[in-house]
Write a protein that binds this DNA or RNA. Structure first.
Lengths: 330, 330
DNA sequence: GTGCTAATTGTTTGCGTAAACATGCTAGCG
DNA sequence: CGCTAGCATGTTTACGCAAACAATTAGCAC
């Protein structure tokens, strides 16, 4: 910076003013400074700037795992929105969704330079009152029940599961089986509860819940069991991967989808429309989630936003060809 | 830091020594300082540290898109390895794989605090001699031909495509069709070239290449065309999504896979084993790519590594149930 | 011309840390 | 007993920048 100032024949402070785009600089001076900057190849040093201002223009994203479709899409949207706002993303992966790991991640975030954080952990641990995040740092949490303590962006899991279940009931199925996500997952329990409530509200029998782990293989294993029964006509899987596994099990046992069993998924991953048969599923708007997270976080950072409350992103049922009226109703 | 020093009754410099784990500190003094740190909740300020040392303990990852399976897995591996090494990841998404965007990303990286960068752009632009990255920053590039200019980590695309093609030929297919990735993609052209070379080496006829865009839908559209022909018995798709689309088209036209047409994919995405039928595909070790990228980059950063050369990660053909001998050979 | 305001630019200062240098203290040796 | 080597600790300084304040100039009304 000093070199630029010397070359342009001004003080370092004036260079700083130009670099930060302040208005009260004479145009001709500004031109000289800009020319000098280009000649020297000056880049402001973010460490020094951060040290002086206390702002880092960077936000941390704490994620349990990158390997799920939804988390990835959310991250993509956050990163894109952040780039537009001039913020960079610092990614902190955690190996396990435990409190210890999460606090460790926050600690690392404290050492790295971050103005705020987005937590995508897909677990109940944040909802428990004995777990609390370090205060003072603006935080937005994705898909959690902790809206009374933190700012939360949540997909309307309940409505999605209700729509999926109701869709199957309206086709004439007497009841709907459910392959759930793992215990401890917030999204999984939301979908499971809503499925059950919808069945009860419709006066339908509630079958035993099948607990999966989000993978296609767990869906496949449950599908093999379901294939042995003759009273199953409709299954709602808590995500598309497990729905895919279910359908594989049904194919292997020559059970036609949707003619003998209807299947509905959740997520609407890109490939869902190319499954065989194309999967009826609940679309989640991960991009909207990511964008809204960033928006709420930036509002907190500049002081204009609240630090608690829940924003809900709606879901949409996408009807494709994996659902039909039950054979008995034909 | 000053507060900690006062509480522990030592100088700030001693606190710094403890924080950095230097050895020449009396154990009892060290204990006092550590106790004081915990009491106050001291966290070293990374901006100040970076300002003083010139090291940021952070590396930048420039990606074209997060939404492909492979990039996401690679990023996951990089992030995990980086966390273990005490580095954080700064994610810079670029909207389009053009030189302008890439240079813009590098410029942003220059402003943000980064010790090195990993570029995952999936495009030929880095191979052209007229494109050069700003020098001075350690860089590792994934899947590129620029090994004579930069340090590159590359998956052995050629071997994978050769194995896939040869596998089909060895089953007795007279030739193998190919649904390629888009023009301009480095991986796509590698796989396409190797497929063609393998056919030529085997004396097989080389059918017209079908150009897709990595999406399942593009595979589906090409599949509809292939379904109209009666001379197609084997197809090699350049990724699993397009293979999925192909199989959907074949299912819709009552063409049995693998009885009438064999299909091979590329990537071995998690769901590939649950496709119907389970997909024979080429496994890529994205985790190894990510880990190796980080390793090479850190070597460059601490000065012990070279800044050019190519490291190749092998691929493995995974035989599942989408391939079989052609009907004519039965 | 005097007194004022507004616009532009310069000067001083300190953010939190670690390197370089300085000090003080203990132990060991002849 | 005095001297030095070696270790623990303290003091000074500078990293690059921007906030706060100071200074200079121009423009304007009286």
């Amino acid at each position: 910076m000093a070199d630029v100032a010397a070359l342009a024949g001004v003080s370092a402070q004036t260079v700083s003013r130009v670099a930060n785009g302040l208005t009260n600089v004479d145009p001709s001076t500004k031109d000289r400074v800009v020319a000098a900057m280009n000649e020297i190849g000056y880049r402001p040093n973010s460490a020094a700037r951060a040290l002086k201002t206390g702002r880092f223009k960077s936000i941390g994203v704490i994620m349990f795992t990158l390997s799920t479709f939804g988390n990835m899409r959310t991250l993509d949207a956050i990163a894109t929105a952040a780039a537009q706002a001039g913020y960079s993303i610092t990614l902190i992966p955690i190996a396990l969704p435990t409190q210890v790991e999460l606090l460790g991640a926050f600690s690392r975030l404290g050492e790295h330079a971050v103005d705020g954080a987005i937590v995508i952990v897909e677990s109940h641990i944040l909802d428990r009152s004995d777990v609390s995040l370090p205060t003072g740092l603006p935080v937005v949490i994705v898909d959690s029940d902790a809206g009374d303590t933190y700012s939360v962006v949540d997909t309307d899991q309940a409505a999605g599961a209700r729509d999926a279940t109701r869709h199957l009931l309206e086709l004439g199925h007497r009841t709907v089986w459910h392959v759930s996500g793992p215990e401890g997952s917030f999204s999984a329990s939301r979908r499971r509860d809503s499925w059950e409530a919808t069945l009860v509200a419709a006066g339908a029998e509630v079958p035993e819940v099948l607990i999966g782990d989000w993978t296609a293989n767990s869906g496949y294993l449950h599908g093999l069991e379901l294939a042995k029964r003759d009273d199953v006509t409709a299954v709602f899987a808590a995500n598309d991967q497990m729905a895919l596994g279910l359908m594989r099990a049904f194919h292997e046992n020559d059970i036609a989808v949707p003619d003998h069993i209807s299947v509905v998924g959740f997520d609407d991953m890109q490939e869902a429309s190319s499954f065989w048969p194309p999967l009826t599923t609940v679309h989640q708007d991960f991009s909207a989630v990511g964008r809204l997270c960033l928006e709420k976080l930036l509002d907190q950072i500049d002081g204009s936003g609240t630090s608690r409350g829940v924003a809900v992103i709606p879901t949409t049922l996408i009807e494709r060809q994996s659902t039909a009226a039950p054979a008995s109703a034909i």
